[in-house]
Write a protein that binds this DNA or RNA. Structure first.
Lengths: 195, 195
DNA sequence: TTTTCAATTGAACAATTGTTCAGTTAAGTG
DNA sequence: CACTTAACTGAACAATTGTTCAATTGAAAA
């Protein structure tokens, strides 16, 4: 048997990425085998190589796509206004973008060490770009005299760690909806850099 | 050949755990083989089984030991005084305990999913105990009327995520020493729950 | 209908995995 | 010195790994 009914590249391709993302988020990159992915997609292991040159590229493509989406979405946000307003926009944007993508966040956060050195450099660069956006806001707040941050780089990382940590425990259908979560986190972020 | 000069259980045992910790922190549990650990220790793979019943126990023992140390150290801390004072003590304790143990922190936070369900439950319980200590402080601050936290559970996790994130980028010999780091983080934690 | 070719199978490859264990060595004991 | 035994080796086990590729299938084009 080969090429079952309704089976196309257009269908299998995305399914490979989706399945790989889910399995890697659950078990980790090294713990997931190509046969395991293939099995859940419903094909043999060899068929996966129509969609990725190798396992490493599968991980890299997932992480790069996630970071590219993140940076594109951030650029699409209207960040005008004073520093406080920008910080609120950034905080709410971060939560709204990451909360519906728990698997992507998990993989992008946990599997950095599974990337080859060259691939790691690419992802790290994109991650740095994202951090820089927040740091610029903190710097502006310092200039405006509305923030009191001893070290903008450290504060940037502290805030992102706090926000990203949210994805590690928040699950859909919990007691708190996104709006409530946003309010709580924005309150803490705002105060943490306040005068 | 067997039992080389000066080679004892007292020496090899700790070296197995140390090496495993370092390798797992660097490459991940699933990506590190028993032969790799044995090779760095300087023995054959079979010799490892004098020190652990299996690979899973190796991970579990490391993580349980870390959490037990953490909880014991926390209990040894003098947490008397008002809520603000307690929060400062907790914050500084967390940083001082975790910063010198980057590998343990990394493994304990990244390899939860590599634990068997039973082992995971044990570690999760200990983690919860640690969180509860911080949450109790936040609750007391609410009672005292010196903290303004919308949701103590969420705030607890937000603070711990912020503090633990520090271990992901801080490296010894950087521009900032521990005292400076402590000051920056305590300032942000204090303000984040302030009125 | 016949032809075409993208999609997939299924088998094979060498390398590696965790784990076991009978045998070997040498440090410590008496 | 001889003896004991903890510590370790080295080989073996079956299972699994990522990856390749000739052969096969069947949906769509002609």
């Amino acid at each position: 048997m080969a090429r079952k009914q309704g089976s196309h590249s257009d269908i299998t391709g995305p399914r490979v990425l989706d399945t790989a993302l889910r399995l890697i988020a659950e078990h980790g990159f090294a713990a997931v085998s190509m046969r395991q992915i293939a099995s859940e997609v419903g094909v043999q292991a060899g068929a996966l190589y129509n969609y990725t040159p190798d396992k490493q590229s599968l991980l890299f493509d997932m992480m790069r796509a996630h970071m590219a989406e993140l940076l594109a979405a951030l650029r699409a946000v209207d960040l005008r206004g004073d520093a406080l307003c920008q910080l609120e926009t950034f905080t709410r944007f971060h939560i709204r973008f990451h909360l519906p993508r728990p698997d992507q966040v998990f993989v992008s956060y946990m599997e950095l060490r599974s990337l080859s050195p060259e691939n790691f450099a690419v992802i790290e660069r994109m991650r740095r770009d994202y951090e820089d956006a927040l740091e610029a806001i903190l710097r502006q707040g310092e200039t405006e005299g509305v923030f009191a941050v001893a070290n903008t780089r450290v504060a940037t990382r502290a805030i992102i760690a706090m926000l990203t940590g949210l994805s590690h425990w928040y699950r859909d259908g919990g007691a708190l909806d996104i709006a409530a979560i946003e309010a709580i986190y924005w309150d803490m972020v705002r105060k943490s850099v306040a005068l």
